[in-house]
Computed example of a mutant assay.
Amino acid sequence: MNSVSGVSYPVESRHPGWPARLGPLRVPAGEVAIRPVRLRDAGEWSRIRLRDRAYLEMWEPTGVGPWPERNAFWSWPSQWAALRSLARRGQCLPFTITLDGRFAGQITVGNVIRASLRSAWIGYWVSSEVVRGGVATAAVALVTDHAFGPAGLHRLEATVRPENVASVRVLTKAGYRQEGLFERYLDVAGAWRDHYCFAVTREETGAGLVSRLVASGRADHV
Rank of each mutant, 00 (worst) to 15 (best):
T108G: 12
R49A: 05
V131Q: 11
V4D: 11
V64W: 05
A138I: 04
V32K: 10
R38G: 02
G175K: 06
L83M: 15
S167W: 04
G152L: 13
E60W: 00
T108P: 10
P19I: 06
S3W: 05
L213W: 05
A20R: 07
S119E: 13
G6C: 04
A141W: 08
A42G: 01
P61M: 02
V32D: 06
S46Y: 09
R132W: 09
S128G: 08
E179Y: 10
R21C: 14
W121D: 15
R169C: 06
P24M: 05
W74Q: 12
M58D: 06
V64R: 07
D194M: 01
P61D: 03
R169Y: 07
R14H: 00
R184K: 13
A215L: 09
L22Q: 12
L93C: 01
Q91P: 00
Y185F: 15
W74E: 13
R184A: 09
S5I: 04
G101E: 13
L153S: 12
L156R: 04
E129C: 05
E60Q: 03
H15S: 15
A141F: 11
V188I: 15
V131M: 09
G65A: 05
P10Q: 10
T98C: 14
G6P: 01
F103H: 13
A191Y: 00
L153D: 11
N71F: 14
S13F: 07
W76L: 00
A33V: 11
V143K: 06
I34C: 02
Y9E: 14
H195A: 02
V131K: 02
W18Y: 15
V135I: 14
P36N: 06
S8N: 13
T159F: 15
P61Q: 04
W67F: 03
A166G: 10
L142A: 14
W76Q: 02
R212K: 09
A54Y: 02
A42N: 04
S5N: 15
V140K: 06
L156F: 10
V4K: 08
T205A: 04
F73M: 09
Y124D: 04
G133M: 12
G101H: 11
R35N: 09
C92Q: 14
E179R: 14
E203T: 07
V4H: 06
A33Q: 11
R40Q: 12
R84Q: 15
A147N: 12
R184L: 00
S85M: 13
W192K: 00
V32R: 11
R38D: 08
A20L: 07
S46R: 00
A166P: 05
A81W: 10
V140Q: 11
L39V: 12
T205P: 01
S75V: 00
L213M: 05
L117W: 02
L99C: 08
W45C: 09
R40G: 07
R169A: 13
D220Q: 09
W192D: 04
E60S: 03
A189Q: 07
W45P: 06
R21M: 14
G206A: 08
D100P: 06
G217T: 06
G180Y: 12
P150R: 14
A191R: 07
A147E: 10
F103Y: 15
L56V: 00
A82P: 09
V4C: 10
P94K: 13
V168M: 10
R70F: 01
A82Q: 13
A29W: 08
